[in-house]
Write a protein that binds this DNA or RNA. Sequence first.
DNA 1: AGATGGTTTAACCAAATGGTTAAATATCTG
DNA 2: CAGATATTTAACCATTTGGTTAAACCATCT
Lengths: 212, 212
Amino acid sequence: MREREKEKTGTTEVALKILKAARGVFAEKGYSGARMDEIAGRAGVNKATLYYQIGDKDTLYAGVIHQVLGDVAGKIATAVSMAGHPREKLAAYIEVIDAAVDSNPELPPIMLREVASDGTHLPRVVLEDMAQVVTILAGIIEDGKKRGVFTEVSPFFIHCMIMGTILMYKKAATIKDRQPWLPAGMKNLDKKLKGSAGQAVARLVLRALDKQ
Amino acid sequence: MREREKEKTGTTEVALKILKAARGVFAEKGYSGARMDEIAGRAGVNKATLYYQIGDKDTLYAGVIHQVLGDVAGKIATAVSMAGHPREKLAAYIEVIDAAVDSNPELPPIMLREVASDGTHLPRVVLEDMAQVVTILAGIIEDGKKRGVFTEVSPFFIHCMIMGTILMYKKAATIKDRQPWLPAGMKNLDKKLKGSAGQAVARLVLRALDKQ
DNA sequence: AGATGGTTTAACCAAATGGTTAAATATCTG
DNA sequence: CAGATATTTAACCATTTGGTTAAACCATCT
C-alpha cells in the first residue's frame, strides 16, 4: 500500500495536480464549458486516473470551489479582528479580499460565473461562509455608526459593492488591455490608480461611508 | 413569398420568439450550458426552424447579445447629454444603467459571464460601445474635476465600480433570498435600501467622488 | 523472488449535442 | 385554382462528452 501521501496530507500529489489543472480550465471555460479530457490532459494524467483520484465532474468542481473559496472567510475574520478602529477594520476587510483575488487569478471568473448562475453549484458551507462574512461587515458598520464615523448603509449592499468592484475591475482591465484598437488614452484611463485595486476600493468606500 | 414581416422589421415574429427563448436559456445556463434543443423547445418551435430562421449557435448568441446590450450605450449618451451639472450627469449615467438592468433580467447573468470569460464572445461593436460609454464617464469626471466638485479618480475604475456593484447586487440579492436557512436578520440587511439599487449606487459614488 | 494491493492506462461505450435533410405544409401570386 | 416559393417538421447523422473496464504497472511486504 503506498498511501503514505494520503495518510499525511489527506490528498495525494496527483490529486493536487489535477485540482490545479481543473481550477484553470473551470476558470477559463466555466462548468459546462470545461472538458474532462482537457483537464486530464492539462494535468498530464489519463482521464481514468482523474476519475480514480477524484470522482465525477461535480465532485471535481466542488473540490475546485473549496480550494478557491475555502479559507477566504477565515482570513477576513482574523484580519478584521486584528484591526481596532472601524475604518481600519473596513480597510482590512477590503484588503484581504483584494489579496485573495490577487493571489488567485482563478477566483474572479469562477465567482462571477457562480453569481451569474445564482450560486446553484455552491455548496452550503461556502454560502454559510459568505453569510458570515457579511455578518462581520455588518458588525463593522454598526460599530462605526455608533461611534459616529459611518453613515447608515446596508451592509449587504456594501459587500456587493466591494466584491463587485474588485471582481469586475480585475477582469475588465484584462479585457481592455487585450483590445489592440483602443486608443492609448483610453488604455491609460486607469493607469493613474494609486496603489492596488483594493486600496482604491478602500479609499472610495471609506469616503462614501464617511460621516461628512 | 411571405416576407412581409421581414421586409418591414428585418426580423420575423418566429425569429423574435426564438431570440427571446434563447435569451432566457443563455442567461440561465451560459453559452456552453445552453442546449439548442431546449431553446427550440422553449420557443415552441422545431429545432430545424431555429436553424432556418437564425443560424448556428454562435449566430444565435450574437443575436442575443445584440438584443441585450444593443442600445444601452446610446441611451446612456442621450441621458447624460440631457443633464447639466456633472453630479446630475453622473447620476443620470448610473440611473440609465440601473434601468437597463431592471428592464432586462437577462442582462446581469449574461454580462457577468461575458466578463468572466474575458469578453471572448463579445462582438467588436459591443466592445466599442463600452469604450464609448467609459469615454463619456471620463468626460463627466473631467468636467467635475475642473469645476472643483469631483476628486481625481480613474474613470475606468469608477465604471467598473458602478457596473460591478449593480450587477453583483442584482444577482447576489436573489441568491440570498433563496437560502431558506438564513436568519431573518441577515435577509433584511439590505431591505433598508432607500430607493432603487441605482439610487443607492448614485448616492454612494457621488459621496465618494465629492470634493470634501 | 513472488504475492498483494494501490495506481495508472489504453480502449471502449452509451448518451447527449450541434447540425442537416428531404419531405410536408402553409402562403402568396397570377 | 395552379404553380411557385417560403416555412416548418420528423427523422437522421457525425461528433463530442462524461464516464467505465479490464489489463498493465509499480511499490511494498513476507
